[in-house]
Design a protein around this nucleic acid. Sequence first.
DNA 1: TAGTGGTCTAGACCACCCT
DNA 2: GGGTGGTCTAGACCACTAC
Lengths: 243, 243
Amino acid sequence: MVIERPVPIANRVNSILRQRIFDGEFAPVGRLPSETELASEFGVSRATVRAALGQLAAEGLVVRRQGDGTYVNKRVSQVSSQIGTIWDFKRLIADNGFTATIEAISTDKNSATEDEAAALEISPGEDVLSLVRLFLADDIPVIHSTNVIPLSLLCTDGFHFEIDLPIHEILKQHCVQDIGFAITKISASLVSPELANTLRIEPGVSVLHFNEVIYNTDEEPLVYANNFCDSRYLKLRAVRSWA
Amino acid sequence: MVIERPVPIANRVNSILRQRIFDGEFAPVGRLPSETELASEFGVSRATVRAALGQLAAEGLVVRRQGDGTYVNKRVSQVSSQIGTIWDFKRLIADNGFTATIEAISTDKNSATEDEAAALEISPGEDVLSLVRLFLADDIPVIHSTNVIPLSLLCTDGFHFEIDLPIHEILKQHCVQDIGFAITKISASLVSPELANTLRIEPGVSVLHFNEVIYNTDEEPLVYANNFCDSRYLKLRAVRSWA
DNA sequence: TAGTGGTCTAGACCACCCT
DNA sequence: GGGTGGTCTAGACCACTAC
């Protein structure tokens, strides 16, 4: 039995305000009620409201002007798929206006390669699970994703995975591990012949390459991933707030 | 005369703690003093300490464990050049272990192209300043940067720019504008023949492409930028904290 | 059980913007 | 001047971890 911890009030306030922003409730002026008013409406302290607004401001979703008020950032609120918050390729595809489907290419037990072993801090040759998937946007292959997990971390038998789920959900279901953070190296590269074949694109096309290691809260590696993304179809965006 | 606003205490505490982390003062255990202790040491309230720690945790630099303590994230503290916080290519190059030099290729008055005009929300053909620069890492060209600014925004005469400065510093010096935020589209592309020539790389190489618009706090476009980065030399990293 | 971080409150003072 | 966001305090209670 897992006890669910209550969601902090500040987060709930954040969610409500985010919803209202996307629902356009503050249009056309785009001005939010004052912090005091919001505190009164939700029956919480102003500090709590400020925590919620602070998160929204950090994402660039709202702009706060001292002595004036808090306003919706229309540019940013119409943008989605922000890098830094992307944990779900399916959602990335949907945010780009496509219908996302996922194909499992393979879910095999393998021996860890040198690269994989180094990243996962295990011995080369140790058993790992390789989960290879293809993400399609309106039936166009756009992301080739490989996730490698040490077999020793899996606490369920059999290789039955909900391949539609993002990797962190799969981890949650099949490992006891809690994800802490991930470090991703971003680069551009040419598709390899095999990859070009799988993604059904011409060799020589340039793709985004995400080389990632996911760690638990104890800084131990859980997953080693290589994701290749056809950026002709998927728009990745980064929003930077001037803080 | 510009009145400098005092730096918030929370930010100063943040800076001090960040410095101590990088100086390795908490090694080898990696555990920070408790929030109460820090509050006492700095003579501030616990809430202020928590604000400072919250920023560090959001960057993934520290991990907080309820009932246990706050620990340095050794993985992340050894990483730099995080996308999402990069406003300075010179620093990006330095963080990658190279010596950065910057060459101005041109600083010309031009007529806005269709793309530029659309992004900057001006009329095509309107006067713009095009600032084209080349960033070198140990004398290897690694970033080709083009920044386009409507001439009407410039409040200084002449085209004398401190080309060594990041674009936001240049803006601050030559415009009255305050930067609010930037939206960057990230993609992978092949170098064009001209670009290959400038970057001194072979045609057919894949480069990272950052297409960016910088806005002021009123959501008005200030700069339209296209930056091409040779990711074979520069490692871009993203850290995502599991919040 | 003692100490830690997680959350929230109530109130204060300030700088700033608008009218 | 009145309202807004920016900052900070002091104190409270809770959930959790380590011992």
